[in-house]
């Protein structure tokens, strides 16, 4: 595992995704870059509508009309994901990269048994006899901590609890041994005790299989728990990116700072008031010029409302897009353009 620890799996460059609605173009993702290496767990945090799920759908090719990728590139092990034919895409999905979703209650087909859906996931990609696929499915169910898996295979989704269904979803994601698992808010729809179990399970599985995980969430606690790297998204852009310690202890972007301040902490000596981020999220149909966070930012300067800030390297693998990090001379030069 150590050997391929630093193999680059996914390379996303300047990705743009837009939804062409009757009211106009909504730039849901406006130019994001990141790399994902094998064995890495990357968290993508951001509020609702910040484009974090859309970006994941773009990787999976699951964007549906009127959404489409309008620019940039997604490379998986050097192959251009966006140029895949539908055949290639089918074999890519589930096999190389698999995805689990937010609501396990509605993500499993209600009219087929768990076993049927798991075996289908295997048989989509490998031509193997049904009993082998079944054995594989049972093995996965055992791995995700489902007791009596032979029995569960014959059950329908409505006969299982939410936590169990999410475990089944995870098993389904793992059944083809993918290199990347994209988890789109996998714990949001579950109650808190089950959330903790699912996070624990994902950590264990990650250690066991060594696969990379993209963990999309709006829960910073979950990020601290499981991730190595974090990207903070706001209005379709990555505003800050770095390893988990950087983000939690040395946040550079005012938005990240705001997020951290609005999160309750149990380790604080005195119970401080939570500080909300003022204002409302950006109207994605008419995004403001300059920094998207500008209008809500406590440190907003003139330039912030005119020019979009560049990504500034503030540490080893730690970048943030904020004019506060740029020295005055450069700011003036940029502003003069």
């Amino acid at each position: 595992m150590e050997i391929n620890m630093h193999k680059k799996l996914l390379e996303i460059k300047n990705l743009h995704v837009s939804f062409f609605t009757p009211a106009g173009e909504v730039k849901a993702v406006g130019g994001i870059d990141y790399d994902l290496y094998s064995g890495e767990v990357m968290g993508i945090v951001g509020e609702s509508g910040s484009g974090k799920s859309v970006e994941a759908y773009a990787i999976m090719g699951l964007l549906q009309s009127p959404g489409r990728v309008t620019g940039g590139s997604i490379k998986f092990e050097g192959r251009d994901v966006l140029a895949f034919t539908s055949k290639e895409q089918q074999s890519f999905r589930g096999n190389e990269v698999s995805m689990i979703f937010q609501n396990p209650m509605t993500c499993l087909n209600p009219v087929y048994t768990i076993g049927n859906q798991l075996i289908e996931a295997v048989c989509c990609h490998d031509v193997i006899p049904k009993n082998q696929a079944e054995a594989r499915a049972i093995e996965m169910l055992t791995l995700v901590g489902i007791n009596n898996p032979e029995q569960r295979m014959k059950q329908y989704p409505h006969e299982l609890s939410g936590g169990m269904r999410q475990r089944v979803m995870i098993a389904m994601g793992l059944v083809c041994d993918p290199k990347i698992l994209i988890a789109d808010e996998p714990t949001t729809a579950l109650d808190v005790t089950i959330q903790a179990q699912i996070i624990e399970l994902m950590k264990e599985i990650q250690k066991l299989t060594g696969m990379a995980i993209i963990f999309i969430t709006h829960n910073l606690g979950v990020v601290a728990e499981i991730c190595d790297k974090v990207s903070v998204m706001y209005a379709g852009k990555i505003v800050e990116q770095g390893c988990v310690e950087d983000i939690f202890y040395k946040p550079k972007h005012p938005y990240t700072l705001g997020l951290l301040k609005s999160m309750p902490r149990v380790d604080e000596e005195q119970h401080e008031r939570l500080i909300p981020i003022e204002g409302t999220p950006v109207d994605m149909l008419n995004p403001p010029p300059g920094c998207p966070f500008g209008p809500r930012c406590g440190f907003c300067m003139k330039i912030c409302l005119r020019q979009e800030p560049p990504q500034i390297e503030v540490g080893d693998c730690h970048t943030a897009a904020c004019w506060l990090l740029v020295d005055d001379a450069e700011k003036e030069a940029a502003d003069a353009q």
Binding site: F101, T106, E120, A121, C124, M172
Partner: peptide, 21 residues
Amino acid sequence: QEYIRTARAKGVSPRSIIFKH
């Protein structure tokens, strides 16, 4: 429905999505 998206994410062919799921 979301289970159709799940099926697509699994790599099920479009034909099988319509006729099976």
